Amino acid sequence: MIKIPERVGKLPTLFVVAVLVPTAISILYFALCSDTYISESRFVVRSPEKESSSGLGSLMKLGGGSSSGNEGYATHDYILSRDALETLNRDGLVSKAYGNPSISFLNRFDADDASGGRERLYRYYMKKMEVVHEPASSITTLRVRAFAPQDAYEINRRLLVQAESLVNKLNQRARSDLINYATKELEEAKAVARDAALALSDYRNREGVVDPEQQATVQLQMISKLQDEMIATKTQLVQLRAFTPQNPQIPILQTRVQQLGREIDQQIGLVAGNQKSLAATAAQFQRLQLESQLADKELGAAISSLQEARNEARRKRAYVERIVEPSKPDYPAEPRRLRGILNTFVVGLVVWALLTMLVSGIKEHKD
Score class of each variant (00 low, 15 high):
314 R>M: 10
41 S>V: 06
151 D>K: 02
341 I>G: 03
264 I>D: 01
299 L>T: 03
349 L>T: 04
26 S>T: 08
108 R>N: 07
173 R>N: 14
179 I>C: 05
214 Q>F: 09
136 A>N: 12
67 S>C: 00
232 A>E: 10
342 L>Q: 07
288 L>D: 03
154 E>C: 04
285 F>R: 03
14 L>D: 03
298 E>S: 15
346 V>C: 06
53 S>N: 15
26 S>G: 13
339 R>G: 04
58 S>L: 09
140 T>Q: 02
70 N>G: 13
206 R>D: 14
26 S>A: 15
48 P>C: 06
117 G>F: 13
112 D>P: 02
135 P>Q: 12
239 Q>G: 00
50 K>W: 01
136 A>R: 13
192 V>D: 09
4 I>Q: 01
212 P>S: 05
13 T>M: 13
47 S>E: 06
93 L>Q: 04
275 Q>D: 15
171 N>D: 13
16 V>A: 08
97 A>F: 02
285 F>Q: 01
160 L>K: 04
299 L>R: 07
123 R>I: 00
325 E>K: 12
21 V>N: 05
11 L>E: 06
142 L>G: 04
367 D>Q: 12
72 G>F: 01
90 R>W: 02
119 E>Y: 03
124 Y>V: 01
111 A>I: 11
230 M>D: 06
216 A>D: 02
33 C>A: 15
334 E>M: 11
208 G>C: 05
334 E>S: 13
39 S>C: 05
136 A>K: 14
330 D>W: 08
221 Q>A: 15
82 R>S: 10
345 F>W: 14
60 M>G: 06
7 R>D: 08
138 S>A: 09
34 S>K: 05
308 E>M: 11
51 E>Q: 10
176 S>P: 07
115 S>W: 04
95 S>I: 08
75 T>H: 03
271 V>M: 04
101 P>T: 11
96 K>R: 13
30 F>T: 14
286 Q>F: 10
358 L>Q: 08
112 D>F: 11
196 A>P: 05
132 V>R: 07
341 I>Q: 04
178 L>P: 02
271 V>D: 02
35 D>W: 00
58 S>D: 06
121 L>E: 01
233 T>Q: 12
154 E>L: 12
136 A>S: 13
173 R>E: 14
122 Y>A: 04
364 E>N: 14
178 L>E: 12
259 Q>F: 11
225 K>P: 04
345 F>E: 01
243 F>C: 00
152 A>N: 05
348 G>V: 03
116 G>N: 15
242 A>F: 08
49 E>G: 09
291 E>H: 13
221 Q>E: 13
71 E>F: 15
69 G>L: 09
295 A>E: 00
52 S>P: 00
113 D>C: 05
327 S>Q: 14
82 R>D: 04
367 D>K: 10
71 E>I: 04
226 L>Q: 06
50 K>S: 10
257 V>L: 09
67 S>H: 07
32 L>K: 14
142 L>M: 04
69 G>A: 13
300 G>F: 08
220 L>S: 09
200 L>H: 05
133 H>N: 15
351 V>N: 02
41 S>E: 03
109 F>W: 12
297 K>L: 14
115 S>C: 00
40 E>G: 00
291 E>T: 09
354 L>K: 00
